[in-house]
Computed example of a mutant assay.
Amino acid sequence: MKIGVLALQGAVAEHIRSITRAGAEGVPIKKVEELATIDGLIIPGGESTTIGKLMRKYDFMEAIRDFSAQSKPIFGTCAGLIVLAERIQGDEEAHLKLMDITVARNAFGRQRESFETDLSVVGIEETIRAVFIRAPLILSVGAGVEILSTYKDEIVTARQGHLLVASYHPELTDDYRLHAYFVDMVREQASSFKNSYSRRHLDSEAT
């Protein structure tokens, strides 16, 4: 099982390290055609406007939408969360518009207001360590979105089917359990696809 990390900006090596520790193969994704070689994708942090511009420049926008349309899991952290959101507070144009959430950029303040905390996340037994750096905030979610964790009653982790987002940087700690959660999402989806393919193949042979 291979999970790609979009390598346009952000802590690519740190995400790959966490993926490896979680039991999967992590690879940097620099070209659109490399998306066909992976089972899941992580969009890391950085600066969302810059990431959006680079994605448009290198033709990643429609390619990642097509990747998502195949129900292949995508995990957005910090700026990656913003990139996946359908709506961004204010006048900024949204990017991929894949996840039914409204987000606010830099909601937790600037660089000097960065902090670490322990978070309880649905589906993970013990608290995880989260690093917030110029972090966005999920203001609201659609009916199909599951809230996985909050910080001071504000939504910071959420899931919509094959899409997972976090306001913080799980890759900047030694705690890789959120990456393991994503690896499990990818494994389950790959298994579901394999079983579906097998049933279609058997039905085809029967006819």
Rank of each mutant, 00 (worst) to 15 (best):
V27H: 09
Y58F: 15
G123C: 10
G161W: 14
L54Q: 01
F60K: 12
Q160R: 07
A13Q: 11
T173L: 05
I128V: 08
V83P: 00
F115A: 10
D39E: 15
R110S: 10
E188Q: 14
V12T: 04
L84G: 14
G76L: 07
N106Y: 09
I133C: 10
F108S: 04
D174M: 07
K31Q: 13
S191F: 04
K53M: 11
S140T: 11
R200A: 15
H15Q: 02
E113N: 03
S196E: 15
F115Q: 11
I38W: 09
D203M: 01
L139H: 03
R112W: 10
K31L: 10
A22I: 01
Y176Q: 11
I133R: 14
G123N: 04
A130N: 08
Y197E: 15
A79I: 01
F132E: 11
E47T: 10
F67D: 01
V12R: 09
L35W: 01
Q160N: 02
E205G: 00
D100M: 02
A85Y: 11
T150Y: 11
S196Y: 13
K97Q: 15
T150H: 05
Y151R: 04
S18K: 00
I19Y: 12
F67S: 02
A130M: 00
L172Q: 04
V32F: 07
A36Q: 13
A94Y: 15
E14D: 08
Q9N: 04
A7V: 00
E93S: 15
G161V: 02
N195V: 05
T20R: 13
K72A: 06
V121N: 06
L178S: 04
T117R: 06
R87K: 14
S140H: 12
H15I: 01
S196A: 05
T102I: 06
